[in-house]
């Protein structure tokens, strides 16, 4: 009996920790109190009511954008539309020109005459149709997940994939940004009293995960590689060991990228305005990676970079 309880407890712990890990990767974009992570336009258009983000303006009001720009991410949120509510989630956009630079994942009550598969909820509005039409019932909460994974965009509503887009195959999306703010479109139904509501807005920033960023070093597309390189420099010390491993590997594309980015990380670490912790962590990571690598070329390179960090301590 005792043994059973122990095993049971153990299993529970494993499940709990897995669940926590997955959730830990998500951070909240909306705290239910204020819009600290967002930029509210001059004409408003959004307000926080009872822990929910509410847009009901009629004739005026601005779209709402995150302050931070994101490239690759999983966005989760819940939304509710009124009878003729009309809103949307704008992804990878420059708030100065949202529809030119980004695309809108549509949120639309099913009353309107333009509710074809290219313009209904879950579609990449005007670019990619839904292949699996979601439940469009108004007045209830729905879950939405948008995954921007380099050139692939996946939209799910209520845990079912509705839309899958490969940017390279969509002509109208070829010049779209691969990074940008996330926007929520102000409700713009032409009838007074209509609304869209949001709650539980969470984001998992894939570019803060070493494994994901490492994958970008192998991408054939130059833009995607540059994106991964930039993310790796931001991550700093955490990327040193994965990059040392890539550098010792066989893939010429990834190898040369990792060599250059290792230099860039050290260059940043030694900049006068860089925080001491970034520098110290990079120095430690270089030391450990130099010890553990089996490639002499990589080890010599890491030692040379260590010398550069070391010299900046004097």
């Amino acid at each position: 009996m005792k043994k059973f309880i122990l095993i049971n407890l153990f299993v529970t712990l494993i499940f709990t920790s897995c669940f926590t890990q997955e959730n830990d990767r998500f951070s909240s974009l909306f705290n239910g109190k204020n819009l600290s992570k967002w930029t509210l336009g001059e004409e408003g258009g959004f307000e926080v009511i009872k822990g929910e983000l509410y847009t009901s303006s009629f004739g005026k009001g601005n779209n709402l954008f995150t302050k931070k720009w994101y490239c690759n991410y999983v966005l989760r949120l819940e939304y509710m539309l009124s009878d003729v509510g009309n809103s949307g989630v704008i992804i990878r956009c420059d708030p100065q020109a949202p529809w030119e630079t980004g695309v809108e994942v549509q949120l639309l009550a099913p009353w309107t005459p333009r509710r074809d598969d290219l313009h209904c909820t879950g579609s990449l509005y005007g670019h990619v149709t839904v292949t699996n039409r979601p439940d469009e019932t108004t007045g209830i909460w729905h879950k939405m997940e948008i995954k921007c994974d380099r050139k692939t965009i996946t939209v799910s509503v209520d845990d079912t994939i509705t839309t899958l887009a490969n940017i390279d195959t969509v002509k109208t999306m070829e010049d779209k940004f691969l990074c940008g703010a996330i926007g929520l479109q102000v409700n713009h139904a032409n009838i007074e009293g209509q609304y869209a509501k949001f709650r539980n807005i969470y984001i998992r920033d894939l570019d803060s995960e070493t494994e994901y960023v490492t994958g970008g070093f192998y991408e054939k597309d130059t833009k995607l590689r540059s994106q991964a390189h930039a993310a790796a420099i931001t991550l700093g010390a955490k990327m040193v060991e994965p990059l040392a491993i890539i550098m010792s590997g066989e893939n010429p594309v990834a190898k040369s990228g990792s060599k250059q980015v290792l230099f860039d990380i050290v260059a940043r670490a030694t900049a006068p305005q860089t925080a001491e912790i970034y520098k110290n962590d990079v120095a430690i990571a270089l030391k450990n990676s130099a010890k553990s690598t089996s490639s002499e070329i990589t080890r010599n390179y890491l030692e040379w970079l260590r010398g550069m960090i070391g010299s900046s301590d004097q």
Binding site: T270, A271, P272, S312, Q314
Partner: peptide, 20 residues
């Protein structure tokens, strides 16, 4: 390579305040 502006002392041929 370092992506930053550098100050140079031409008398001793060393950068100022940047050991890297």
């Amino acid at each position: 390579r370092l992506k930053r502006k550098l100050k140079w002392n031409s008398l001793i041929e060393q950068f100022e305040g940047d050991n890297a």
